[in-house]
């Protein structure tokens, strides 16, 4: 079953993956120099480097698929918020370390399923990127689930803090496995997995990690914001304003 995907859909699909990694990588980079311990500064920097590295590969590919001559930097620095296609969860602010860990752990679980599935994609370039990203994500998940357990099953204070963060961020998981027409056309083309098939495995892993962390899974909440469709929260605009400042202020300059 290999229907040829519309180029636009193909471009958008890859862009979503790249933007999610970029936005999450940018958020993590805000921690550098401010982490709870020096060793965690290095750990978070490693995660950030991995994610921005993924973004560079994916955005470069997306630019080629788009065919308008936009490279990774043109896409990262010169698009406005409605054109960004990242998961809404990725753009949420860092908050305290526990909130950052919950956000990371939720996306790590999602990336594990998606990248694993993409290693079998009929798009061989995407499959290769996914294979590399999968190894990185396994380490990220080890890191984030480890910390989820330490904070969830640490002190009473840490347990309450991280449970609150989980309760607040859970609504963004509604987007993770809700396919739209782009997901569906990519699936029909053999390029992308069926999100609904990945959902149960993600959910099982979530339950296992929450049990180890003595945390309570929040109830499902419908939540209409879908960053992957360009409908973001107010946070993304501020993040991009900071990130894109130099390129916007000195148009056409080489850096």
């Amino acid at each position: 079953m290999s229907a040829t995907p519309a180029p636009e859909a193909h471009y958008r699909y890859v862009l979503r993956l790249g933007d999610t990694s970029l936005v999450l990588g940018q958020r993590l980079s805000e921690w550098i120099g401010h982490a709870p311990e020096l060793e965690e500064d290095l750990a978070l920097a490693n995660l950030s480097l991995d994610l921005i590295g993924q973004a560079r590969l994916l955005l470069t590919y997306a630019g080629e698929l788009e065919g308008r001559g936009r490279d990774e930097d043109a896409l990262a620095f010169l698009r406005d918020a409605p054109e960004f296609a990242n998961l809404t969860l990725a753009e949420q602010p860092n908050g305290d370390f526990g909130r950052t860990i919950v956000r990371q752990w939720l996306i790590d679980g999602w990336q594990l399923e998606v990248y694993q599935a993409l290693t079998g994609s009929s798009d061989t370039r995407l499959a290769a990127i996914a294979a590399k990203a999968l190894k990185e994500t396994r380490y990220h998940h080890r890191f984030s689930s480890g910390w989820l357990a330490r904070l969830g099953d640490g002190t009473e204070q840490s347990h309450h803090r991280v449970q609150s963060s989980l309760d607040e961020l859970w609504r963004f998981t509604a987007e993770l496995f809700s396919p739209d027409e782009i997901d569906e056309s990519m699936c029909a083309a053999g390029i992308a997995p069926a999100l609904t098939e990945l959902a149960p495995r993600w959910s099982a892993r979530v339950d296992a990690d929450l049990a180890a962390a003595t945390l309570r899974r929040p109830p499902a909440q419908p939540y209409p914001w879908h960053g992957k469709r360009g409908v973001h929260t107010e946070y993304l605009g501020h993040m991009l304003g900071e990130m894109q400042h130099l390129q916007r202020t000195y148009p056409g300059a080489r850096w």
Partner: peptide, 20 residues
């Protein structure tokens, strides 16, 4: 050397600090 709360964290820290 490095500081860690437990052995699993120590391995991760060692990986992050000494094998970049």
């Amino acid at each position: 050397s490095l500081h860690a709360a437990d052995a699993r964290m120590a391995i991760e820290h060692a990986r992050d600090v000494y094998t970049r």
